[in-house]
């Protein structure tokens, strides 16, 4: 099947998708379509590779950008999706009858930045960087579902370690954590500590179970 058709099929999927689509889910859809239809067209797309899909997605995205229209195609949190362009926010927001969302405070953003770049990270480490107590802010970020507990560190006191959520990526329009600006400069200089999975952590440390994360 020509690239032309693959591109159109992907475009149709993206337009109809209620949410964004990952490349994996697009590949799964191709398999399912052939199971359902058994036609020469569905057969032709049944074994398309993820690279081919990515190429087509990037092409569609470039076409949108070139068109300079009211929408764009972006990858956010691993999902490709059509989004409105920012210039038209006043009207789209009015249509949804929504107030402008609450932005995070500078303190919350600083804390979130430290967690994002240094995850998994403990409260003590965050405090060491910011030079102030961060308990309330971390709790608030957890409440907003931007930050989550990943597990406990293995060091003394077994402090809880934190990381960012998928909503964080969505809220800041990031493809993934590698997409963080200046990531190389800001990442932890030493090896990150591996959190022990939450489930296997006993309340009191009586048994030292074999931890798969242990090095």
């Amino acid at each position: 099947m020509s690239n032309m058709t693959l591109k159109n099929v992907v475009e149709a999927l993206l337009i109809a998708a209620p949410d964004g689509l990952t490349i994996d889910s697009i590949l799964k859809i191709f398999k399912q379509a052939h199971l359902d239809e058994q036609s020469t067209e569905t057969f032709a797309l049944e074994n398309v590779s993820s690279e081919e899909v990515l190429t087509v997605l990037e092409k569609l995205s470039a076409e949108c950008a070139e068109r300079k229209g009211g929408y764009q195609l972006q990858e956010v949190a691993g999902k490709w999706q059509y989004l409105t362009t920012r210039e038209y926010a006043p009207w789209v927001r009015a249509m949804f009858d929504q107030p402008r969302p609450q932005r995070l405070s500078p303190a919350a953003l600083e804390t979130l930045a430290i967690i994002a770049y240094r995850q998994p990270v403990s409260r003590a480490e965050i405090e060491a960087v910011r030079g102030v107590a961060v308990d309330a802010i971390v709790n608030n970020l957890i409440e907003r579902d931007l930050v989550k507990a990943l597990g406990r560190a293995e060091g003394p006191g077994k402090p809880m370690l934190y990381g960012t959520t998928e909503l964080f990526l969505q809220r800041f329009g990031l493809k993934n954590l590698e997409d963080l600006p200046n990531r190389e400069e800001l990442k932890r200089p030493s090896e990150p500590q591996n959190p022990a999975p939450l489930e296997t952590q006993p309340e009191l440390d009586t048994t030292q179970t074999n931890n798969p994360n242990k090095q």
């Binding site: 964004g20 989004l83 920012r86 800041f172 329009g173």
Partner: peptide, 18 residues
């Protein structure tokens, strides 16, 4: 970095999904 995130936050809040 926090300021960088702030810019992205502003960018993102003006963008709507289908």
């Amino acid at each position: 970095a926090a300021f960088e995130l702030h810019l992205r936050e502003i960018e993102r809040e003006g963008v709507f999904e289908r």
